[in-house]
Structures are given as structure tokens and as C-alpha cells.
Write a protein that binds this DNA or RNA. Structure first.
Lengths: 361, 361
DNA sequence: TTGTAGGCGTTATCAA
DNA sequence: TTGATAACGCCTACAA
């Protein structure tokens, strides 16, 4: 069976360079043992023929694709697009590729995961999505490591990397308490998700330690999105008119931004004059002029580093006996939405904020 | 030579199911001719063995990877992360994968492109990045189609899909003129990029046709980013104090947002009371409460459709004789930053705005 | 509809 | 250091 092959292969290069095909392969392998003159001759021939090594074939032969799958749950939340970007940058720098997937609302993550497994990727990063335990065991069967990003898990088989939600929530509670808040409104996120729950827990625990009783704390559901929290705030205050809290804690920045917009537009509330506000994540949008959100930044770069390290470790067969749950501390970012904080770095903060936001065309 | 193979292959499944290996392959091929009972038997065996077809091997054999590379220039600009998301969603729906790359400032796009070519992807989408003509011809040599997204080109060999910058700029000029603006400030983007230049051209041409002379128009460089335009506005008005224009046109939304923040924070200017403002792109952030930016939305979905269609067409060997430059019209989005527009859809606009923004955790 | 045989383009093994 | 040869796991062509 003959195929009309149109692509240039290593055999073509070998013939032109007067060497064997494996020698061509060696010429393109960094630390291969090959005479310098042969390598030069091969590379010259390759350039002349416009030869490019076929990574797909290499992957098949090497049983290693140099591809990492990144499954992003909600690209609407800038935190996740920032995370995706971080993964792409980091992997690109080490000559690995990112196979990117999105999943709507953590729904049919399984189908997507299956795709990734079929490509025999070196590892899979899952951000905020729900995977079935079937798929988890399948991935282990196949030998492809999975790591959860920004998500904790009770499944002992899963590795995860996340920011310390409890500690972060506590930092924000302390800041608002120190600024004089007595009554609090918490705008929750996804009730299924561990992230929202832990942030709320950290916040409440800290308040309790400070002597703030449950009677001074109200919780509402913010639907985990800008629109959801905008509506939640609108509805909540529309019903019991003047009963405004001193402080609002939204479990993530995009929701906090929704709260800010709703409070200002619907109720003409000054932030932080009338009500102070805090979010969580440290997304770039939170640094925009109208917000200057007080928040806790997730250390994305460090989290990415750790995630890839854990994936690589498992990939080398160092299957840990126990589950690894890496929890990194969050970084408190003072903003203008809690009074008395900006003084920490009056002008520098603004400049830093501006620099941290970009956007070319 | 024996390899200690650990993975389950189609041969294992074939043996268990009592069929030949190609039959296993057929069982996993949607429209293959295979008896129903055999397919069932194969699928049962596959499930039992946790067999997953190896897409890498399939790609090699089929000379077709079902992978499309998407090279994103600037993930800091939400327009590009939205575009990337659109590509991922669309391709995922048709069982294709996205190999995602980023390029800093369109600099060493070539290295990244080379990576993509090596994976023998089915096509490459390039958004806002500069590629050398060497690489372009190489890709043609190799037979991998490239399409530019949101970028025009003079290179006759390149296919491109973009929004009509000239028409869009014109729409915004008309809107601001109709709202009573006599003097204009244009905040430019990347001077190298065609996008910024064409948007400015469309804007200026329309103004000229309306009788606004060059003397009433000032142009400054906004550095193509939030930070750049924030600084540009700050510097520009700091020097010649009270000489404020009636209207500001920033060539993209993220820059317009930077302008809005600077105008408000540094000069206490009311938008649109003192100065009206317009952007371009239609990013989600522009819909946030404090902005409600008047802008022209790029029809991302249609652009993605068109891009993939053109890539597919070339992939089927239908190499067009001439360059294809697809230009789709932009959609005028009335916002609150130009007076007298919101009346078009008073309450519905806001609701629509809220719905268009999400963000789960 | 099914099986046999060969090829996709590389890397790994082993002997020279 | 180099070359012959055998995998890698699948798909395609062809014959049965």
C-alpha cells in the first residue's frame, strides 16, 4: 500500500545529508551523541528541505506528548483566564504545549476529560469543575495524573493546589473589623463549591473570635457571578429598605464588583463611606479605578508552579502514598473599599495598580 | 526489541472481543460499517479493559490531528481572552482541540508558530501578532493553513478575518457628532497595528464628512493598554489644563476604560456630562456599571465561524488563488457614555448588560 | 461486513 | 558515534 506522501520526513533529510534516518533524529535531540559535522550537515539539509520534526510521531514513539491539558471551568471569571494564561506561559517556556478546554458550569467535564485522556497528555489540570469518580479512576488506570487547581477535594486519590481560603477570609474579616464594621453581609458563591464555603468559614470564624455574633451577620446567595451578585444585592436591599450592613464580603472579586455596581447604581451608596466592601482572588479588574477593591490575592504564579511540579512528580511514577493537598497563603491587598487602608502606600498603590493592568490591541 | 507496554491498545480489546484489531477501530468510528453485535461486543470489552483510543496514534495515521493552534497575543486585553474562549467552545463542540499559545507583544511569534507547525495541527489562528514572511512561507510549504484574526495584512498569502474598523469608527463618530460634540480627542493604540490605524481613519473620515476639520481633532498615543491610556490622559490634560474636548474616542474598550478612570479620578470629570466617551470591541468589562461604554462590538462568534470555515477550506486543498480578507461589520452598542443614546432601550439595556457578564467560582 | 497487510514518522535498542 | 531494525498504536486499502 503506497501513500502519496507530501510531507518532508527525516528520511528525506537523511538521504540528502548522506546519513541514516536515526542520525537525523539525533541531530534534533539536544544531548544526543552525534558528531558535530554530521549534525551541521543534517541541519543544513533540513533547512534546505524545510523539514520540521513531527511532534505527533515523536509523541507516539516516546509515549509522551509534552502536552498538558488545562480544563477551565468559567472563562467569564477573569481569575480563570488569568490562570489559563499563567499555565500557557509557564508551559511554553519549558517547551510544552497546552491543550485548552472549557466546561460550562462544571457540568459535563467528563466528556472533556475523556478527550484529554485520549491525547495521552502528560497531565491534566482541572480548575473548578466537577469530575466523576469514574473518570478519576480511569485516569489513574491510564496513568495520567490529574491536579485540581483552586479547588479542594475530599477524594483521597486527587492532588490539589489552592489558596488558603480560610486564612484569606480571616484576613478580610480582621481588616473590616479593624475599620469599624459591626454588621456584615456575606454574598456567597456556588453552594456546591468548596471554595466559597471555606472563604465564608474563614470569614465567620475570624469574626466570631473578634466577638461578632451570628446575629450581626447575614448571608445571601450571590450566584457566583457578576450578574448573580448584582441581582442579589438589588433584591436584598429592595425588600428591607434601610437595613444596610457596615460591610459586605463577596466571596470573589467578580461578585464584589457586581455588588459595588449594584450598591452604587441602585441605592446610591458610597463605598466605603456608607458600606465597606471586600472580595477575593485579586483579579486585574478589581484594580480598576472605580473599585480599588480590598481583597486577598491568590498567588497564581506560585500555584501554577506547584501544580506543574506535582503533575511532573506523579508523571515520573512517584505516586504519593497519600493525597497531596497543597494550600498556599493568600496575599492581603489593601484597597479603597475598606477605609483606613490605602494610607499604607498612598501613591505607590495607585501606580502599581495601573501597571498591573494592560491590554494591547 | 520488546517494550514493556503498559497501556491498553486496540489489540488487547480485539483479543478479548474475539475480533480483529481494525474491527475495534471501526467500533469507535461513528459511520463505519460494522455489525451492531460486534460493535457492542467491542465496546463492552473496551470498557472492561478501560481502553481509550489513542488520538496521537490516530493523528499520525490519519495525517490529521484534529487540533487547531490558537496564538493569542495579549491576554491582558479581555477581547482576546473572550476570543480564545470562543474558539475553544466552537472547536470543542466539533470534537477538535485547541492548542493554545501566547506571545508577548507579538515579539517571538515565530518560535511559537514553529511549535504549532511541528504538531501538524490542522490550522493556525493568529490574533494580533507579527509573523515573519519566512514562517508564512514555511507554513505553506508544510501545508498548514494560517488565518489572522482581528488583523488585516498586506501579505497576499495570508487569510484574515476582522471586523470593519473603518465602518465601526464611522458609527462612533456619527453618534458623538449627533450628541453635539464639536472637539475630539483620539487616543490611539499600537502605531504598528493596522487595527488602530483603521479605526482612527474611519473615525476621522466620518468627522470630515460631517464638516469637522482637523483643527478640532487631537490625537495622542494611548499605548494600547489600560495603563497606557490612563497615563496618556493624565499627562495630556495636566499640561494644558482647561482645554478639554467634547468627546474622547479610544481605539479599544480597555483603553476607553482607562480613559474613563483617569478622567474621573484625576480631573473629576463627569461622563458624559462634561466629556463623552467611546471605545471599540464590545468587551464584557465595558458593560460594567460605572462605564456602560458606548462602543462597537466585534461580532466574535461570526468571526470565529468565518475563521474556522476559511481554515477548513484551505485544509481541504481549496487553496484560493487570491488572498481572502473577510471583513465583518461591527455592531453599534449604545451606552451611557454618549448622551441621548440609552433611551433606545432604557431598562432592557441594563438587564441585558448584567446578563452578559458572569463569573462563577 | 470482516480480516490481512502495510504504512504513518518518529524514538529506542542493540550491534558494529 | 553510527546504522539497521523494531516498536509506538492506529487507520487505510484491499481482498475475502
Amino acid at each position: 500500500m503506497k501513500r502519496k506522501t507530501t510531507r518532508v520526513t527525516s528520511y528525506d533529510v537523511a538521504k540528502l545529508a548522506g546519513v541514516s534516518q536515526p542520525t537525523v533524529s539525533r541531530a534534533f535531540t539536544p544531548d544526543a551523541s552525534i558528531a558535530k559535522d554530521k549534525r551541521d550537515r543534517v541541519l543544513a539539509a533540513a533547512k534546505q528541505l524545510h523539514y520540521l520534526p513531527n511532534s505527533i510521531a515523536a509523541s507516539l514513539s516516546r509515549a509522551r506528548s509534552n502536552i498538558v491539558a488545562v480544563i477551565v471551568g468559567d472563562m467569564h471569571n477573569p481569575f480563570y483566564s488569568e490562570s489559563l494564561q499563567a499555565f500557557i506561559n509557564r508551559l511554553q517556556a519549558t517547551n510544552r504545549q497546552v491543550l485548552a478546554f472549557t466546561v460550562e458550569d462544571g457540568r459535563d467535564c467528563d466528556a472533556v476529560l475523556m478527550q484529554a485522556l485520549r491525547y495521552h497528555v502528560d497531565g491534566i489540570v482541572v480548575t473548578s469543575a466537577n469530575l466523576s469518580s469514574d473518570l478519576i479512576s480511569l485516569s489513574q488506570e491510564v496513568g495520567i495524573p490529574i491536579a485540581l487547581f483552586n479547588r479542594s477535594t475530599s477524594d483521597p486519590a486527587l492532588t490539589s493546589v489552592r489558596c488558603d481560603s480560610v486564612q484569606g477570609g480571616g484576613l478580610l474579616a480582621h481588616a473590616m473589623f479593624a475599620a469599624g464594621a459591626h454588621s456584615y453581609l456575606i454574598v456567597r458563591g456556588d453552594p456546591q463549591g468548596s471554595t466559597s464555603r471555606l472563604r465564608v468559614k474563614g470569614f465567620r470564624d475570624a469574626l466570631a473570635a473578634l466577638g461578632i455574633g451570628d446575629g450581626s451577620i447575614t448571608e445571601i446567595d450571590g450566584g457566583s457571578s457578576y450578574a448573580g451578585s448584582y441581582r442579589a444585592i438589588s433584591n436584598h436591599f429592595a425588600s428591607l429598605s434601610p437595613n444596610f450592613p457596615d460591610a459586605v464580603f463577596a466571596v470573589n472579586d467578580i461578585m464584589a464588583i457586581g455588588c459595588a455596581d449594584a450598591l452604587r447604581a441602585k441605592f446610591n451608596i458610597d463605598i466605603p463611606g456608607d458600606i465597606m466592601l471586600a472580595g477575593f482572588d485579586g483579579i486585574r479588574e478589581g484594580r480598576l479605578g472605580p473599585y480599588h477593591l480590598t481583597t486577598v490575592r491568590q498567588p497564581i504564579e506560585d500555584m501554577v508552579t506547584k501544580t506543574l511540579e506535582l503533575l511532573g512528580r506523579e508523571d515520573n511514577g512517584e505516586k504519593p502514598a497519600a493525597q497531596i493537598n497543597c494550600v498556599l497563603p493568600g496575599i492581603f491587598i489593601p484597597g479603597r473599599t475598606v477605609p483606613g487602608l490605602e494610607e499604607i502606600a498612598p501613591e505607590k498603590a495607585l501606580e502599581a495598580d495601573i501597571e498591573s493592568i494592560s491590554g494591547k490591541n
